[in-house]
Simulated assay, not measured.
Amino acid sequence: MLRLRNHLLSGVRAAFPPHHHPFSTTTPATSPARFAAEEYLVVTCGLTPAQAAKASKGLAHLKSPANPDAVLSFLTGAGLAKEDLAAGIARFPQLLCCKVDKTLTPRFAKILSIGLSPTQISRITSIVPNIFVAPSMISRIQFYLSLLGNFDLLHFALKRTPYLLGQKLELVKPNLALLLQCGLTASDVALFSKLLTTKPERVKELVACAEKLGVPRNTGMFKGALWAVHCLGHDSIGAKMDLLKATFGCSEAELALAVRRAPQILRISEGKLSRTLKFLKVDVGLKLQYILLRPPILGYSLQRRLIPRHYFINILKAKGLAKENIDFYSAVCLTEEKFVQRFIDPHSKTIPGLADAYAAACAGKRPHDIIL
């Protein structure tokens, strides 16, 4: 028996020879070989040291890299990108503990059978790596693919709500039905994926609160109203309305009209709203009534859109290259490309450097620091 025991021990030592880790305080002669999980995660899997330190706790029971090596070999051989695997392992390090034959092979085949390509599986693995150990998630992928119509919307929804596939469809379907009744499209549902996982009673409250803002269902603005209520919480809407009324210095009726036209203004912080309002009234010279009738203007970036466009329109006016009655809101609403085509390109020869100066201003450089 003693001879057999010594024989087995010598075989183990031959298979896993002891090594000395540079940070170890023990010597190879006195300590058995150990699987250095953190080092493996960094060197082999591509995790950052911080990610590896956290993820290694889930691999503390491993004695060798044999199974992790087999997992990586199978998944990379199946077409998964190393970057996606690294992201997935950082989220769910236990993926490296899966059995290739019993778990990964049949699950991977099942996911392929519902119509996903290896590249698409790779992208999902980076977000929901535990899909290989939870068979119910695979059927849910099939459900959302059918609902959303394409993989890109599914991927977008999972990025916003990684736990979406972990939610039972019995909870999701009532919320989905209500959102569709409100006129939301498949792409809207992907945007509102967090609401799908919310308690149905809560979703009903949010919908009712959005309607109380005066925005009817099945209108283009309802989505914005629902999102604003979702972000703020229906209990905070009243306080936000009072704050907006005080900031604008307007009547309740004027504010209600502005919110119906652009419910997204409810999500603008008090500081940004005050700075933007001051600029529009003092620098641009707009009346409050003009602004309230065009509330989307309050949501544009002050530094990257409002200030640069105001500054360059004034340059053109000063040089007699633009009409004095340019409507500021119309100019602000233009896309970057169209604004440049209409206001910058036609005058670039007359004012050398105008296009470059405008590009610099939109990139964050203060227009008043730009010399033309």
Results as ranks from 00 to 15, higher is better:
residue 180 L to K: 14
residue 168 K to A: 11
residue 60 A to N: 00
residue 135 P to F: 06
residue 66 A to D: 11
residue 115 G to H: 05
residue 173 K to D: 10
residue 298 L to I: 06
residue 169 L to Y: 12
residue 22 P to A: 14
residue 80 L to W: 01
residue 176 L to Y: 07
residue 263 P to Q: 09
residue 275 R to M: 10
residue 295 P to N: 08
residue 186 A to K: 06
residue 299 G to W: 03
residue 16 F to D: 06
residue 167 Q to T: 15
residue 333 C to Q: 14
residue 278 K to D: 11
residue 370 I to D: 01
residue 184 L to W: 02
residue 144 Y to D: 03
residue 313 I to M: 14
residue 123 R to I: 02
residue 112 L to W: 01
residue 234 H to D: 13
residue 202 R to N: 13
residue 144 Y to E: 03
residue 336 E to V: 11
residue 326 I to L: 11
residue 27 T to I: 08
residue 171 L to N: 12
residue 258 A to I: 10
residue 177 A to G: 08
residue 18 P to V: 15
residue 3 R to K: 14
residue 243 L to K: 14
residue 256 A to M: 12
residue 110 K to E: 13
residue 96 L to P: 05
residue 187 S to G: 05
residue 322 A to L: 15
residue 192 F to Q: 00
residue 334 L to W: 02
residue 258 A to F: 10
residue 188 D to H: 11
residue 125 T to M: 08
residue 55 A to M: 03
residue 212 K to D: 14
residue 159 K to M: 12
residue 108 F to P: 00
residue 176 L to H: 02
residue 108 F to N: 00
residue 212 K to M: 12
residue 77 G to V: 02
residue 332 V to Q: 09
residue 102 K to S: 09
residue 372 L to N: 07
residue 255 L to G: 02
residue 226 L to E: 07
residue 130 N to E: 13
residue 179 L to C: 09
residue 208 A to V: 10
residue 90 A to Y: 02
residue 151 F to N: 09
residue 268 I to H: 04
residue 304 R to Q: 13
residue 229 V to E: 05
residue 304 R to L: 12
residue 216 P to Q: 08
residue 29 A to D: 14
residue 130 N to P: 03
residue 150 N to A: 06
residue 154 L to C: 10
residue 97 C to R: 06
residue 258 A to V: 11
residue 20 H to S: 13
residue 162 P to C: 10
residue 220 G to V: 09
residue 362 C to I: 14
residue 37 A to M: 03
residue 55 A to R: 01
residue 310 H to A: 13
residue 172 V to H: 09
residue 122 S to Q: 06
residue 126 S to T: 03
residue 34 R to G: 08
residue 308 P to V: 11
residue 160 R to I: 12
residue 203 V to D: 02
residue 330 S to I: 09
residue 219 T to H: 07
residue 367 P to R: 00
residue 80 L to S: 03
residue 4 L to M: 14
residue 361 A to I: 05
residue 324 E to G: 12
residue 326 I to A: 03
residue 207 V to Q: 04
residue 329 Y to R: 07
residue 36 A to Y: 07
residue 322 A to C: 15
residue 155 H to Q: 13
residue 267 R to G: 08
residue 92 F to Q: 07
residue 88 G to D: 03
residue 362 C to H: 05
residue 75 L to N: 04
residue 294 R to D: 11
residue 279 F to C: 04
residue 226 L to P: 05
residue 148 L to F: 15
residue 238 G to R: 10
residue 104 L to M: 02
residue 130 N to T: 09
residue 266 L to V: 09
residue 47 L to E: 02
residue 25 T to Y: 08
residue 52 A to T: 01
residue 184 L to E: 02
residue 95 L to F: 03
residue 84 D to Q: 10
residue 9 L to D: 08
residue 227 W to M: 14
residue 229 V to M: 08
residue 219 T to W: 05
residue 309 R to C: 14
residue 67 N to Q: 14
residue 38 E to D: 09
residue 54 K to C: 04
residue 37 A to C: 03
